[in-house]
Simulated scan of single mutants.
Amino acid sequence: MEWTIQELAARAGITSRTLRHYDRVGLLAPSRIGVNGYRYYDFSAVARLQRILLMRRLGMGLSAIAGVLADEVDTCDGLRAHIAALEEERDRIEQQIRSARHTLDALQSGAEPRMDVMLAGFNDDYEEEVVSRWGERAFQESNDWWHGKTLDQQRAWKQDTEDLVAAWVAAAKAGVSPTSEHAQSLAARHVRWLSRIPGTPTAEGDRERSIEMVECLGDMYADDPRFAGMYDDAAGATFVRDALRTYARTRI
C-alpha cells in the first residue's frame, strides 16, 4: 500500500510543503517517484514520519531529529523508542488530569485542594534523570521541598528561574565571552540558585560533587534540545555550558 504526498499530508495533519521540505533536508524521502512525477510513500516512510512528528512535538529541531534517525540501525528499535516516549507522555497527561480533577472537586465542595496533588505530574519531568545521576534521595528531598511550597512560593521560584534564564540569553546575544566577569557572575548566580535546592551537592557543600554536577548540567543544557530551546537556541545553551564549566573548574 502506498499513499501520495497529498494523502499522507492529509492523514498526518501537515502540509505537502512540509513533506517536500523534509525531503529537501534529507529527513524523509518519498519511497518512490512515479513516472508522472508524483511522490509515493510506503509503510516504512510512514513509520519514519511517525518518529519525526513525535520528536517535533517534543521540541526537537530538524537537525537533532536527523541525528537521532541517523543513529538508528533498526526500525523496530526506533518504534520501540517511539512507543516508550508516547507511553511516558500518556502517563504524564493522565497524572495531570488526576491533579486537575482533584482541584476541581475540592473547589466545588468548598474544600482546600492539596498543594502536592494539585501540581503532581507538572513538576516531575526530570525524575528519572535526577535519580540516575544523583540518586533517589536527591530527587526525593528536592521533590518534597518543591511540593512543600505554597503556590505563591512556587511562582516566585519560577520567576527567579525565568529571570536567570533571561539574563543568560541576553549575555549570549550580546556576544559576551563565557570566561568574562559578566558570564562568571551569571555562573555564580546559577550555582547559588542550585544551592537553594535541597538534596543537591551544592546545597550540601560537597565541592567535588558540586563541580561534577555543574559540569554535568552544563553538558545537558547544550546536548538536550529541551534546554537549547529554553536558552533561545543551541548557541545560547553552549554559551551557558562553557561559562558554567569555567566557573566549576576555577571558582567552586
Rank of each mutant, 00 (worst) to 15 (best):
M1T: 15
M1Y: 15
W3S: 10
Q6K: 14
L8Q: 05
A9E: 07
A10Q: 04
G13P: 01
G13D: 00
I14R: 11
I14T: 03
T15L: 12
R20Q: 02
R20M: 02
D23H: 04
R24Y: 04
V25R: 05
G26T: 01
S31P: 01
I33W: 09
N36A: 13
G37S: 09
Y38A: 08
D42G: 14
F43S: 13
Q50C: 12
L54S: 07
L54V: 06
R56Y: 00
R57V: 00
M60K: 09
L62F: 03
S63D: 10
A66D: 00
A66S: 05
A70M: 07
C76Q: 13
G78T: 06
L79W: 01
R80M: 05
A81W: 14
I83G: 08
A84V: 08
A85C: 10
A85N: 11
L86G: 03
E87S: 06
E87M: 10
D91E: 07
D91W: 09
I93R: 07
Q96P: 02
R98K: 08
A100I: 08
A100W: 12
R101H: 13
H102C: 08
G110K: 03
G110H: 11
A111H: 09
A120C: 07
F122K: 02
Y126Q: 11
E129H: 13
V131H: 14
W134K: 12
R137E: 12
A138N: 10
D144H: 13
W146R: 04
K149F: 13
K149N: 08
L151T: 12
Q153T: 07
A156H: 08
A156R: 08
Q159Y: 12
A166N: 12
A167M: 07
A174G: 14
A174I: 04
V176W: 15
S177D: 14
T179S: 14
S180G: 15
A183K: 10
S185F: 06
S185W: 11
S185Y: 12
W193P: 06
P198T: 00
E204K: 15
G205Y: 05
G205R: 02
S210A: 09
S210T: 06
L217C: 09
M220R: 08
A222W: 05
D223W: 14
D224N: 05
R226Q: 04
A228Q: 15
A228R: 15
A228T: 11
D232T: 00
A235Q: 12
R241N: 05
A243C: 06
A243M: 04
L244A: 01
Y247K: 00
T250M: 03
